[in-house]
Design a protein around this nucleic acid. Sequence first.
DNA 1: TTTTTTGCAAAAGGTTTGCAACACG
DNA 2: CGTGTTGCAAACCTTTTGCAAAAAA
Lengths: 130, 130
Amino acid sequence: MDQIYKIFQGKSIKLTTQRKAIARIFLGKHCPPQDAESVFKGLQGKADKATVFRNLEIFESAGILRKVDLQKDSVHYELNANHHHHAVCTSCGLIEAVKCTFRKLDLSKFREIKDHSMEFFGICKSCAKG
Amino acid sequence: MDQIYKIFQGKSIKLTTQRKAIARIFLGKHCPPQDAESVFKGLQGKADKATVFRNLEIFESAGILRKVDLQKDSVHYELNANHHHHAVCTSCGLIEAVKCTFRKLDLSKFREIKDHSMEFFGICKSCAKG
DNA sequence: TTTTTTGCAAAAGGTTTGCAACACG
DNA sequence: CGTGTTGCAAACCTTTTGCAAAAAA
């Protein structure tokens, strides 16, 4: 809980019960990327779905969450800490965190890169056996 | 045009006028990733939007096109050749092609990686000046 | 001629928005 | 108490789907 208060500190985001509940979901151990639907379900009625959408975006703007694209139908978010990437099993949906760095970029038209995505898609060992 | 026939060869995809028109769009020089809407507009009535959606998916399955995620609202596609990535200006939408390789992966739960995404988001020089 | 593909229109699914009631600070 | 936030319902937008007519092989 302490963690939650720290997260909101100095961000001019009012500490509502709904926001605390949403934050608590992402603070769970090894919480995989979540979409609005899964957060909403996890809240079990503690917030409206529109509120979830609104706050996921607000949390992202505040730097608390980070968008992750897993090539699924909906946008996923995860805590914006411990920078890492993902490998996604296209058969069962399993997600493995990946540490991976890329070689330096050579961009002629850009001044500044602020973010990047890097996700991998394949078949996990378990599905390969089946 | 020759190019188009080659593309469809041995893929058991019937060569309709709509498909030729869609393919022709992607074969234009330096064609940036396109979404269904922009392809549809480019066709100027030569195909229905549902047909565009259906064929973008068919072309992807056939390995002709490749999905690209630019963190926009719609799915983008580009020719599945000359493997590269993208830098996207979050201000004006400019897209620069990027050659970039990553260091080897260390995945414990995966048997095989078939695909990956890697896109960069930032501000282009032109927008930085403005 | 047989099978696939197309166009149209309707539906689906995720996400956004307007607005009055409500709650944080 | 005032302003930001919520819930609800409706709207939005991209994408998908059913089906009869049209076109490819």
